[in-house]
Each structure stands twice: as C-alpha cells, then as structure tokens.
Amino acid sequence: MSRIAPEDAKRVAELARLRLDDAELPAMTAHLERILEYVDLLMEVDTRGVEPTAHAIPLATPTRKDEPTGELTPEQAIANAPAAEGTAFSVPKVFDDEAAG
C-alpha cells in the first residue's frame, strides 16, 4: 500500500512553499515513499509509556537580561535584501487574506 500519493506530495510541497512540476513529482513521490517505507521499521517498537526526547542533554532554558543591545543599523538590516524601498524590505503586495497566522 502506498504511504504517500502524488496528491499528498503536492499538498506537502504547498505547505513547504516548494513547487513540484509534473516532471519532478513522480520521482520525488517515489523517494518519499521509499523512505517512509523504511521508517515503518519503527512501528515494531513498543513505545507506550516512553517519554519523547526533544533534546539529548537535559537542561533548562537560560534567560538573559532585558537590555537592548547589538542592534544593526537599518542599512545593515537591508544590506542583503533582494529588493528594498527606503529602509524596508520590498515584496509583491501583501493581501490580508493571504495570512495564515
């Protein structure tokens, strides 16, 4: 049984803002399928009651003082920008309905 259909790959690509053209899609889907098939190996492990590990070394997050420091100048901030207007980054028109957040 296939774990990932080309439509799934397309949907995931859209979530990841990648464009898969029709020529790439079959090979990419097949690769993902093969990897997911391999990963199914994990399903044989009984992990009931096992806590997940997000970090290997158990630490608590450090904090810093609330002091403004180390700011870049606006010119430095946009120095690498592919497009800028004034000291702001420039992008094609943003419409509110495009927001996902």
């Binding site: 810093r64 000291t87 980054f89």
Partner: peptide
C-alpha cells in the same frame, strides 16, 4: 525594553528596521 528572543529594543513609530538584530531578521 528589549524583544522576547532578540536583544533589539522595543519601540513604536520609528523608521522601518531601526530595531533589529540578526535574530529579528
């Protein structure tokens, strides 16, 4: 006075990108 995960200052009404660090960007 500074941001949540960046040391840039918190301000209102300044020129665009006046208050950024590599973290904000």
């Amino acid at each position: 006075r500074s941001k949540l995960f960046s040391t840039a200052g918190v301000s209102y009404g300044d020129e665009p990108n006046q208050h950024t660090t590599p973290v904000c960007l």
